[in-house]
Each structure stands twice: as C-alpha cells, then as structure tokens.
C-alpha cells in the first residue's frame, strides 16, 4: 500500500528520494497454501506499540510485539516522522493496523487463521539497522506457524 513521490510536497519528496533503498533480486512470489488455509500475521511500520512499551527512537530498527488480543485502547504510535496523518489512527486504529478486519476475514473463512502475535517496526531506519531484527522475527513467525505476513506501511 504505497503512494507516489509526485503526490508529496517537494521538500518531503526530496527527503524520501534520498532514503537508502536497496534492490532485491530474489523476491519471487512463491506458491503456497490457499488463502483459506493460511495463518496470517500483520507487520506494521507505523511505530505502533502497547502503551508502556519502549517508544521508538530515531534509527531504531527493532520491532514491538502486539499480541492478537491487544485492546485498541492500549495501542499508541511513536513513529519519529511527522509527515503522515495520525488523525485517522486516532479515530480508528484499523485504518493503519487492520486487526479487526483481519479477524473478520478469518471469521468469514476468507483467511485460514490469525497469528497469535503481530508486530510493528517504525519505518524510518537504515536497512542494516533492521536486518538482524527482521531475521529474528522471521524465525518467530515460523514458530507461530505463520505462513503469510501482510506488511502494512504508513
């Protein structure tokens, strides 16, 4: 879920153009189970976490855990950027972190099941800062029998 630089104010687009952005050559869309049999996790980059968890800091490539049963009232956002809308999230967390919508797709049988844990990064970090955390998280997702992750940026 991504937008175009040409839609941005020039000062912001200029900043985003300079962000380190590697190209990966091994990103095949491999076949897997039907969606109705998949166990799905949400991975946000909105800098979300439970109130009381460590806020994100500049350059922070780590993630925070959001258990599936986390009440919406416990979710806060500590993304360092001020260049995206937060009023939507303030009004309805699902517009940035669609946990209730995913639960509904499971109830309807569209998606097989929901992971027990979901995750958020804070999407303003150099790729190297996140890599060890992402590698670790991939192992945890396997332990949770997750076979699909939906990355939801802001």
């Amino acid at each position: 879920m991504v937008k175009r630089l040409s839609d941005m104010p020039e000062v912001e687009a200029h900043h985003l153009r300079r962000i380190e952005c590697p190209t990966f050559d091994d990103t095949l869309a491999l076949p897997g189970k039907p969606l109705s049999q998949r166990r799905v996790a949400l991975i946000s980059t909105a800098g979300l976490h439970r109130r009381g968890d460590r806020p994100f800091r500049p350059g922070d490539g780590s993630y925070r855990v959001i258990p599936a049963g986390t009440p919406a009232r416990d979710l806060v956002m500590s993304h360092i950027s001020v260049n995206f809308d937060r009023t939507g999230f303030q009004q309805d967390h699902n517009v940035a972190f669609p946990i209730d919508r995913l639960r509904e797709l499971v109830e309807e049988g569209v998606v097989g099941s929901m992971a027990s844990m979901h995750y958020s990064f804070m999407g303003a970090f150099p790729p190297d800062a996140a890599e060890p955390h992402a590698q670790h998280l991939a192992g945890l997702l396997k332990q949770d029998a997750v076979d699909a992750a939906l990355l939801v940026p802001v």
């Binding site: 879920m1 937008k3 095949l28 809308d85 939507g88 517009v95």
Partner: peptide, 18 residues
C-alpha cells in the same frame, strides 16, 4: 526499487493505508 514479491498500490493519504 525494492521489488517485494507482491504489493498493492493505493492512493490514500499517507498514514491511512486502509
């Protein structure tokens, strides 16, 4: 540039991916 396996492009305001 990154070439993720699959991406959905939406034109919504940043911060409101849904």
């Amino acid at each position: 540039a990154i070439r993720p396996p699959r991406a959905l492009w939406v034109t919504f305001e940043l911060g409101r991916p849904l």
